[in-house]
Design a binder for these strands. Structure first.
Lengths: 207, 207
DNA sequence: CTCAAAAAATGAACACGTTCAATATTTTTT
DNA sequence: AAAAAATATTGAACGTGTTCATTTTTTGAG
């Protein structure tokens, strides 16, 4: 039975991941020492590094799950009928923000973003950046869908506006995770206010 | 002569700062060890920490100088006459980008941004964020100036649009410093493309 | 079943940012 | 000018992420 080794491996992988996410949420990313994670998972420090490239890589599993779910939810929103630009945008962006703290704490987001900027050549950063681009593309897709339904002016460059809006969404999210006192509703309100002029200018009918 | 101590202090401060920036640019931020910086400055490691709170704080002096200069240049641009939105925006943003690598390398920017996100409660992060806000406000000021000259539609919310545009500028700058192969001209072209629809929609006269 | 080769686990050792008790220097007081 | 107080310097020691030579476990062929 050659499955013994494979099963042990899968089991340890799961135990380490569980221990890490538990500790990250309980004591924070920085204070969760590899030694503690390894002990809680019932393995040695060396084994931890056998399963994960480094401490930061542990986060990516969680970030990835988070973003994949929100992308799926976003597709469902785009598929629906919308008759105004601003509410459609608010719904998609609101979904991003509402979902954001499901698996990750603000501190975990900060760490993930920080790592992806600090070491852009690592697999971690490349995966993070790829997820970001898929989100950006989704906002572009929404604008394009609205344009095809005749809600957005036909001369508007959907990709240009979509990227612009998403970059704002992203930057505001950075401000959000940097400020422990800021809540999701405040964030959504700020972004809605920023989007409004662009949304109304690009709408058909309004002038 | 009570100036002996003060003069020594100023001298050491300068020597440490010089050594650090030299090494950061020569071998990169991560590879520049405190021990090396201290040795090059002719002081002990302990003394380094007497003058600077930590390694990251060394960067802030440089970042601060960089941004202060660009803010001054930006004010001069805003004061000038403009008759179109897009070129005015491009000029201000182009100045930001052109100036950005004067004192800091891409790696130093990445480190600074990364630190400011990872530890938002530190003085480092607070200073960085404050500089960011002043830049954001400057973009708002430009839009407002254009509006007062009758170039931007009167119903446009200048702060909303300004923040949106600046957040895009900022996010694109993050992409820029994450990619060693991207040059300033490519960056400027991308941002100009993103700005164009908004610039033309908000212009008086165009529809 | 035995045993050699492959795979996995281990924890001591290392690197580097940071701290701090001890020491040295400068300034002030008398 | 001597002593006391204030300030500055020092480098060994510490904490924590990461590496790697060694040991243990698993596998499959003979």
């Amino acid at each position: 039975m050659s499955g013994l080794r494979a099963q042990k491996k899968a089991d340890k992988n799961r135990r380490i991941l569980e221990a890490a996410t538990t500790l990250f949420r309980k004591v924070g990313y920085d204070s969760a020492r590899i030694e503690d994670i390894a002990e809680m998972a019932g393995v040695s420090v060396g084994t931890f590094y056998n399963y994960f490239k480094n401490k930061g890589d542990m986060l990516m599993a969680t970030v990835s799950m988070e973003v994949e779910e929100v992308l799926a939810a976003g597709d469902a929103i785009i598929a629906r009928d919308h008759d105004e630009v601003a509410p459609a945008l608010s719904e998609l962006i609101g979904k991003y923000y509402d979902h954001s703290l499901t698996y990750l704490s603000k501190e975990m987001w900060r760490t993930a973003m920080s790592l992806s900027i600090a070491q852009p050549e690592t697999p971690f950063s490349k995966r993070y950046t790829a997820l970001d681009h898929r989100l950006s593309k989704q906002v572009c897709d929404l604008i394009r869908a609205l344009q095809q339904r005749g809600i957005v002016r036909s001369e508007v460059d959907c990709d240009a506006v979509g990227e612009l809006l998403f970059n704002n969404v992203n930057m505001m999210f950075i401000e959000f995770v940097k400020d422990e006192d800021m809540d999701v509703n405040g964030l959504k309100a700020s972004v809605a206010k920023q989007n409004l002029p662009v949304a109304s200018l690009m709408s058909v009918g309004a002038d």
